[in-house]
Amino acid sequence: MAEEHGSRDGPAEQARQALLAEGSYLMEPDALCRCLGVDDTEWRAFAAHWQDLVPDTYAAALGTTRLRRYGRFRLSRAGELAAQEHTGFVQPERSNPLYTEVDRRFEPLTAAFAGEPVLAALIRMLGRVAACLDDADAWDVQVHPFRTVAEADNAAEPTPEGRHRDGVTLVTSLLIDRENATGGQSTVYGPDGTERMTTTLERPGTLLLGDDRATLHGVSPIHPADPARPARRDVLVTTLTPH
């Protein structure tokens, strides 16, 4: 697995330019795979980690079936990546309206997930993109794999908090897979609530990036296309904040 360098930096450069000009960018799967040097076998191995997620009791209290884990890393300017001690997840003031300053406790990433080469390549690429937003010597990276499940009689909310910020610098959402799902429309808003981008992440490997300081975001509910079977939407949310 090769990491992005030289001419392969093209999609990341496009992301940097779009973030500075518009506050968001949608990277297509082929471009992401070029950046990360990922083939189909490596992608399938990475996506298999979503089978090891555990229930999110906070989302369950709001009526949404969601599974997740949580991990923290430190990324240096030179690209050195180090896992950090597992702690609670606290979002700062003026971010998530449901959980501002709440110390939520989630299960950590499995050791296999935390050591994934695909994850490391993704984080390093995002660090290079985020450099256009802040000249940081190091980044605090938070990793949130999610699986949202909907039944015929119960739509699921990928973002039960509604339109919100995460209180970070760069926020990204990578579609891992979706099955039997309709809905799940991602929208990026300006500070005044104006829609800047609306898209549905349909193809695995599609990556939505946003300048979290200049935009808000939200995802519409998902429903089963075939009501006899559950709907599933798997994503990886990764955020970067200067250390």
Rank of each mutant, 00 (worst) to 15 (best):
L240H: 06
P29V: 05
A152G: 03
L119Q: 07
L240F: 06
C35W: 10
R128V: 03
V118F: 15
R77L: 10
R104A: 01
T110A: 08
L20N: 04
G10T: 14
L240P: 04
L20M: 13
T169D: 04
T182A: 12
R74V: 14
A150H: 01
R105G: 01
S220V: 02
V235K: 04
G37Q: 04
G218C: 11
D166N: 10
W139V: 09
T64V: 08
P230G: 06
L67W: 12
T57Q: 15
C35M: 15
E151P: 01
I222Q: 01
V141P: 04
Q17W: 09
A131S: 15
E22P: 05
A59E: 13
H164D: 03
T182G: 13
T87E: 11
E151M: 14
V118N: 04
F89I: 01
F46A: 05
G6I: 10
Y58R: 03
V237E: 03
T200A: 14
T65W: 00
T239E: 02
S7V: 12
G183T: 00
T100L: 08
P117I: 02
G71I: 10
E80K: 11
H243Q: 14
L175Y: 06
G183H: 05
T169L: 13
L207F: 06
E202H: 11
L62E: 15
E80Q: 14
L133C: 03
W43P: 07
R34S: 14
D9M: 09
Q14D: 15
G71H: 08
T64A: 09
A114F: 05
A121D: 13
F89S: 14
V168L: 11
V149G: 00
A231I: 03
E179C: 10
T64G: 09
A231D: 06
T41D: 13
A225H: 13
H144N: 12
F113T: 03
A130I: 14
G23H: 02
L207T: 08
D234G: 04
E85M: 06
R128T: 06
A48R: 13
E22V: 08
E85D: 11
H86A: 12
G210V: 04
G183R: 00
T200R: 13
R68V: 03
A47P: 13
V219N: 02
F113I: 09
P221M: 08
R8A: 11
L201C: 01
P117D: 06
P92W: 05
E3R: 10
T200H: 03
R124C: 12
L208P: 02
V141S: 02
L98S: 10
D177G: 12
F113N: 07
V141I: 13
M27L: 15
G218W: 10
D56I: 00
